[in-house]
Design a protein around this nucleic acid. Structure first.
Lengths: 124, 124, 124, 124
DNA sequence: GTGGTCTAGACCACC
DNA sequence: GTGGTCTAGACCACA
């Protein structure tokens, strides 16, 4: 099943996010080789050029490095991955508080609800 | 500006969510008249039938009542609106913890990050 | 509001039933003058000929008598009206047991349910 | 033979009632597959969308469940079917007493007539 | 093939 | 004008 995109933002941006998530979550482990551009592009059902652009951006960010002849590899730099994780988490937190605010729920109450929810999850 | 939809879920479902949010946030105040089906449909750039379906669902949920010749009105039932708010909040909380889990961040740590974030917002 | 007909049975038959019901229920009282054919036809939104046919049938049944110059009158014969009431009741009873049978509910159980229902109505 | 509708109520509502009756009476047995939307629509001589709407309502009520690619199935939940039977019976009882009341026959007498009728049926 | 969704356009009752 | 219903015809995902 190909990945899903929305039409409102550039696809390559969304590709960056998706691959970053895979790296941060460990699905693409540090130091391992990524699938080739062509494979990734086929899997995501996007044009190889688009995938290329996404990978270039990841390289620029230091999450991926390319070795001329053997392909692209996930960075070994744990700190770099950790920073990416923090960026993603930051965005999730922003979304969370913003969506709660749209409901008319302030940060304090949102936090309280999250604590309750966590307690309930803990019961499982 | 027309509303935005993604193609992965039925439009009428998304309409229900959007209008529910408007009601819960007070943008469509209790007891007030909603725009007509045709106006809403034109505004959202969907077929009137699709909007009709969404509004019928909202009516079934008790958030909206329709008066045959004069239009549709937001419910006066504060408890009903409060229940809808809770439902929405529940969904936001689920999204939050799920996205954090995808990052490899467990509920406890996610909560800790939210507390920090809230403190920073408090500084603003 | 004109009376309602279904297309599956002759309209004049349905007119007979409706007027019989009015007579039996006392809405058209014994001995009183019925509205003219034209008035009845206009009210029921049917062709005067159709209404004429219905009234002729009622006359044949003895529920209505016509006086040449002054119009049509509901019969004074209480026994005749009582018989009509019984006919109608008979049909209602048949419908009742038949519909219950379609549900898979036999006469004995149907009767039991009717008794319960009556008790509940009595509580009101 | 196509099913019959009256023009005074929405067709989809009448479809719900008819199919519910078929389920409650066991004609559509628990757990069995219903004819496809298109077949049912053709049989009832209505638009597939109208039939779809009726089936969606039945699904919402829990009398029917749909499996995306294989068809719709009558629920296995005997309690759910029993509840539907009770609802239908309730409506029949209401109709019965109401029609009798229109005849000027009160509940007590209506019940007495039903008992007599049942005795006569028992003689058959 | 199945169910599900969407659009377009029409008609109705109500006031 | 309002909401409500119906039809016709199309497209989609799934298997």
């Amino acid at each position: 099943m190909p990945w899903q995109f929305d039409n409102q933002r550039p696809i390559y941006t969304q590709l960056v996010e998706i691959i970053t998530l895979r790296i941060v979550s460990g699905e693409y482990a540090p130091g391992t080789r990524l699938p080739s551009v062509r494979e990734l592009a086929a899997f995501a059902a996007v044009n190889p050029n688009t995938m290329q652009r996404a990978l270039a951006e990841l390289e620029r960010q230091g999450l991926v490095r390319s070795e001329r002849t053997s392909g692209r590899y996930v960075t070994d730099d744990a700190a770099r991955i950790e920073a990416a994780r923090r960026d993603q988490a930051e965005q999730i937190l922003n979304d969370f508080f913003q969506r709660m605010a749209e409901l008319g729920v302030g940060p304090a109450q949102a936090l309280r609800m999250a604590m309750q929810k966590k307690e309930m999850m803990h019961d499982d």
